[in-house]
Amino acid sequence: MAGPRSGPAGTWDRIAGPDAGTGENAGSLGLGLAGALLAPGLARGHGRRAAPVLRLLALDLWGGAWCNNTPSAARWYHRPGQGARQHLAFAAGHVHPAVLAWVDAGGPGDRRARLRWAAALYAYLLAATALLTATRARRTRRVLGLATTAGGVLLDRALTPSAAAPWFAPVFFAKLLAGHAAGAALLPADPLAAD
């Protein structure tokens, strides 16, 4: 795999992978822009007044859900030297639930409920990422990548989804957890596992 280019193109290479093709890049950028355009219209409650925030979140998440599940991103994020610490740091940087808790909150009681929602989704993300990065068997990681994505969506539904961004949990967890299923193919073969 070639390394990232220099300049602005290199910044994109560090996001999508240095060998991302036209289709991968078009999907990432196209879905990101679609999310930025559509997110405010999908908002309910207090979310409509936070259109710029919703646009930024959707740009990152909708495009990232595609991007992180492409073969080039899988090769880039699961290359040698990228281990549990790097994956946990990447996940930890996604404080989107806290931002949505602020957007969704109405009164003081509602604010506490939304912060509990944000803390639960964020803690789930970190725990699921730790579990995924500790799993060395290819088949198990593929299954866990998809199962933890579904589990995050179910947790969100059980705790009452964001009114401002009802699309949030499926896209958030698809971006940050499902990509580990794609990256599982790059794990070294385990001769003891029937993968």
Rank of each mutant, 00 (worst) to 15 (best):
A73D: 09
L121R: 01
G151K: 00
P80N: 13
G47W: 14
A120E: 03
G81K: 13
L154C: 06
R116H: 12
N68H: 15
L33Q: 03
G63P: 12
W66K: 07
A120F: 05
R114A: 07
T135Q: 06
A118E: 03
L56N: 07
H78M: 15
V143L: 15
V99P: 01
Q86T: 14
L61G: 07
G63T: 14
A50T: 12
V99F: 06
L132R: 00
A147S: 04
R55H: 11
V153H: 00
D156K: 01
A101G: 05
V99Q: 03
H46A: 15
T148L: 14
D104N: 01
F90M: 14
A34G: 12
L59N: 04
L131A: 14
R136S: 08
L61R: 11
G45E: 14
A130W: 05
F90S: 11
Y124E: 04
L155T: 02
V99D: 02
A65Q: 05
A39T: 00
G151N: 00
C67H: 07
P161D: 09
P40S: 07
G35Q: 06
T149F: 01
P71E: 11
A118P: 04
A92E: 13
Y77T: 12
P97C: 09
T149C: 04
P40D: 11
V53R: 10
R116N: 06
G41H: 11
L146G: 13
P108V: 11
G64D: 10
R138E: 04
A36K: 08
R44A: 13
R114L: 07
R55M: 15
R44Y: 06
D156Y: 05
L115Q: 09
G41E: 05
P80T: 15
A91S: 10
A50E: 14
L42M: 10
G93H: 11
A39K: 01
A119W: 12
Y124A: 02
L121H: 06
T148W: 07
A73Y: 15
R75A: 15
L146I: 08
R116A: 15
L42D: 02
A51M: 07
V95N: 00
A105D: 00
R114V: 06
A36V: 13
A98M: 14
R138A: 02
R111N: 02
H94E: 09
V99I: 15
S72F: 13
T140F: 01
T148S: 04
L131S: 10
R79V: 09
H96K: 02
G63F: 13
L146R: 04
L37C: 07
L159S: 00
S72V: 13
A105S: 04
A127I: 05
A50V: 15
V153W: 06
L88T: 07
V153L: 05
D104H: 01
G109E: 10
